Amino acid sequence: MWRPIAESLGLFLLPFLLFAVYLALRMRWPLAIEHWTRSRVAALVIAGLAAALAGLIGASLFAPRGQGVYIPARVENGVLVPGRIE
């Protein structure tokens, strides 16, 4: 459950991180408020949403699909037999 949320959050935050690295490489303080104007933040939010959406779509398109039938767990002769896919 947490993995898709963490992946989407990471993809959303990636443009902000890249912009901060860009500012640091240009020898500017990345936490200075004058670098984070409203238009830049809006563009980073749009880029982050696009990256997160692309990640979700890519994960759903390329995820391995189960082949076979699920056999649920059961008790045979007092022993729990785990579920499996056949």
Rank of each mutant, 00 (worst) to 15 (best):
W29M: 08
V75P: 00
L23G: 03
A24M: 05
L44V: 02
L56N: 06
R74G: 02
R38V: 08
P30M: 08
R40Q: 11
R65S: 14
F62C: 11
A54Q: 06
L80C: 05
R26H: 13
A50S: 15
L23H: 02
I33S: 12
L56S: 04
I85N: 04
E7F: 02
E34K: 10
A63S: 15
G55D: 04
A54P: 00
L23Y: 01
V69A: 01
M1T: 10
L9W: 05
A20D: 10
V21D: 07
H35L: 05
G55C: 01
A42N: 10
A32Y: 03
F19M: 11
A6I: 07
I57E: 11
M27R: 14
R40D: 06
R26E: 14
R65C: 06
V41D: 04
W29L: 10
V45N: 09
R26N: 13
F12M: 11
I46C: 12
V41Y: 06
E7Y: 02
G55S: 13
S39G: 05
F62S: 14
E34F: 06
I46N: 06
L13W: 06
A32L: 10
N77F: 06
G55H: 00
L18P: 00
L13F: 05
L13R: 04
T37F: 05
F62P: 00
A52E: 02
I57H: 04
W2H: 09
S60K: 14
S8L: 13
I71H: 13
E7R: 03
A51P: 00
L13C: 14
L18Q: 11
L23W: 01
P15Y: 08
A6Q: 11
Y22C: 06
P72L: 05
P64K: 12
A42W: 10
R74I: 02
P4C: 11
G10W: 04
R3M: 08
P4L: 13
G48Y: 01
A59L: 09
Y70W: 15
F19G: 00
A59E: 14
I46L: 15
A47H: 03
P30L: 05
M1W: 09
V81E: 04
L44A: 01
F19Q: 07
L49P: 01
G58R: 02
Y70D: 05
V75I: 15
P15E: 13
G58S: 13
H35W: 15
